[in-house]
Design a protein around this nucleic acid. Structure first.
Length: 407
DNA sequence: CTTCCACCGGAAGTACCGGTAA
DNA sequence: TTACCGGTACTTCCGGTGGAAG
């Protein structure tokens, strides 16, 4: 039997600690969301006007990561559209995660697709799509609700044009009406918005607070009962996972932790999930997040990160933009590429900073100019570990360590 | 007090790509 | 086929700017 066969056979025959892992996945939304009853009611109270044939207010939802904004919204909308359908109200909603649809055009196409229109991913002018949407609306629907999740990504990339268009659209529609929901965890989001858009978007505001430890425990208990087989998970382990995630009140992290702990238990052939597994899981989850972020970076940004890693390894002086540019250009020349302008490198650095990989402060050295001092927020070893998996990067990196002397 | 360094970061422009419609 | 559309990735241009040196 081959190694592969053996692995698969083992998976089939071996008892897993899981009954059904899907209850611990990000996509699963339970019918009951513990400790979000208030928010659910708030939202439902606003949206219920659809059932009374009147347009609900636009809603702005704000709260940190993993506080249930998306789950609450999806849950309420699901129930609402069930009721609306039974009552014969022609209501439709479009859910857009702006992290993945971050240009005006793509967001618009997503709305069109949710309305059942078949639209090419590119090639058409914006106003054509807008008029297709309005026609479809007028013909088929009384209410449209557009949910812009992680709306800050859309606005930062493409401005608030599309939001403005949507808020204005109502005056052009006769038989249909549109409402918007904007969801964000960015505290400073309001600053990016045009005043008109901001005021119309936040007709109603719902704020989500982080979960505390007991609340997280309740959430995990609910999920664990569904996802794990009877008696395989220690209460202790659940409490521990809740405690870790309570540091930032993030329920998504808590649920991830439990799932990974279960996977680790399975892998090591244990029949129970213990605190120990959760401890291991918390390290693994952390590593995976970093690995995921770095590995999907565009090649140029990976190379830039390599340059920063090299610099932080061998110079005890502060890392400045100028030095980074110097080393980065060297790397590019090694692989036969043209140097890249400082302006663009600044953009790279800004992106790495928003991802939390680096941090920086602008410092003035008087006569010696003003520059950014860059600091890695992740241990160099981890970055080396991830990037030097690629033989090309590995070779470049050791060459870099050997040859570059701080300028 | 003025200078001037070494950048910062907004705005606009260029080049190329994959796509549509006629 | 051609004219046009929007996305992506980058460049060019350029008006700032904190604070030690002069």
């Amino acid at each position: 039997m081959s190694v592969l066969d053996e692995l698969f056979e083992q998976a089939l025959s071996k008892k897993s600690v899981f009954r059904d892992k899907k209850y611990l996945s990000v996509d699963y939304i339970p019918d009951e969301l513990p400790h979000r009853e208030e928010e659910i009611l708030r939202l439902a109270n606003i949206l219920v006007s659809i059932l009374r044939d009147s347009r609900p207010s636009n809603i702005f939802e704000y709260g940190p990561v993993g506080t249930g904004k998306t789950a609450v919204t999806k849950l309420v909308l699901k129930k609402l559209s069930e009721k609306a359908e039974k009552a014969g109200i022609r209501f439709r909603y479009a859910y857009i995660n702006c992290r993945f649809f971050r240009t005006n055009y793509r967001a618009l196409v997503k709305v069109a697709m949710e309305l059942g229109l078949r639209i090419p991913r590119t090639g058409l002018p914006v106003d054509v799509i807008l008029s297709l949407i309005t026609r479809k609306l007028e013909e088929n629907y009384r209410f449209l609700l557009v949910v812009f999740d992680e709306i800050d990504w859309l606005v930062k990339y493409s401005g608030d044009d599309i939001l403005y268009q949507f808020t204005r659209l109502n005056s052009e529609l006769n038989k249909s009406e549109i409402s918007l929901i904007g969801i964000t965890n960015d505290t400073r989001f309001r600053e990016y918005l045009d005043a008109r858009v901001l005021s119309s978007l936040s007709e109603e505001t719902v704020v989500f607070q982080p979960y505390n430890q007991e609340q997280l425990y309740d959430i995990l208990l609910q999920r664990a009962r569904l996802a794990f087989r009877e008696g395989v998970i220690d209460d202790e382990a659940i409490r521990y996972a809740a405690a870790i995630a309570a540091r930032d009140g993030d329920a998504r992290r808590a649920i991830d932790l439990l799932r990974v702990a279960g996977e680790i238990a399975d892998r090591s052939g244990d029949f129970k999930v213990t605190v120990d597994h959760v401890v291991q899981a918390s390290e693994e989850v952390e590593r995976n997040i970093i690995r995921e972020i770095i590995s999907i970076l565009p090649p140029n940004q990976q190379l830039l990160l390599l340059a920063i890693a090299g610099l932080s390894k061998l110079s005890r002086n502060k890392i400045t933009t100028g030095k980074v540019k110097h080393v980065f250009d060297w790397i590019l020349s090694q692989i036969g590429k043209q140097p890249i302008t400082l302006r663009r490198i600044n953009d790279y650095l800004a992106e790495l900073e928003t991802l939390g990989i680096i941090s920086s402060t602008i410092v003035s050295f008087g006569r010696h100019g003003r520059t950014r001092i860059i600091k890695l927020e992740i241990p160099v070893e981890i970055i080396e570990n991830i990037l030097t998996k690629d033989p090309l990067y590995s070779e470049l990196y050791s060459e870099l360590i050997r040859t570059i002397i701080s300028p």
